[in-house]
Amino acid sequence: MTEVRLYPHPSLRPLGDAAIRIGLGEGIDPSVHRRVRAACLALDRARLPGVLECVPTYEAVTVFYRPTVVGYADLERAIESALAGLREGEVPAGRRFTLPVRYGGPWGPDLESLASSHGMSPEEAIETHRTGLYRVYMIGFAPGFPYLGGLPERLWTPRLDTPRTSVPAGSVGIGGEQTGVYPLETPGGWRIIGRTPVPLYDPDRTPPALLAAGDFVRFLPVGTEEYRDVEDRVRRRAYAVECAPHEET
């Protein structure tokens, strides 16, 4: 495990001449994550002149800005004052989404080999995966792609040696100690154990991603019939994904 650290003061560094990276700590950890969310919220609220957008990641918030509107030194000062007295308690609770998943078969071609590599039956692997409550640390890599933390250690599995050239949209995969869902058909090296019919990315929706940093995800195993039914309702825009507020204890 990596050592987790929270910085006493934000560490600001340029990422080129039109972005500033604000480091807040080290490690993939809920405490660093809460600090990142609090900083992102404070910066959103501050509406600093020249700022285009703020992007939360595991250990930092990166602020993208127009250098022709605000210079680095002025923005650095404005950010430091916006982040003074940061309160993590003000960060709103995340939402908890339940995503139906058809595990195994053509939907999850790597389920059996993954299970047997851990000395489990496919059913045990499904049971272990579904019991996890997964935290959305950030969205990145591709539109709507969630970086999920909280995969039970028994399921940690290295990526495929040779990535697939195409992974269908909705595929649920395991890569190392992470699990995630491919929002789009893309190449991918994670081991695919199932598929959800719920779209994680829809450019006609605002915001375009279903999930946001700070949310939680649960997976619910479903049979073929239910999978098809949800898929059909999604197509008719008659499906609402199960979603509830999630207070952390």
Binding site: P56, F64, P143, A209
Partner: peptide, 9 residues
């Protein structure tokens, strides 16, 4: 397209 980086766009 600005403003959607945090959604991965």
């Amino acid at each position: 397209r600005f403003g959607y980086l945090r959604y991965g766009v």
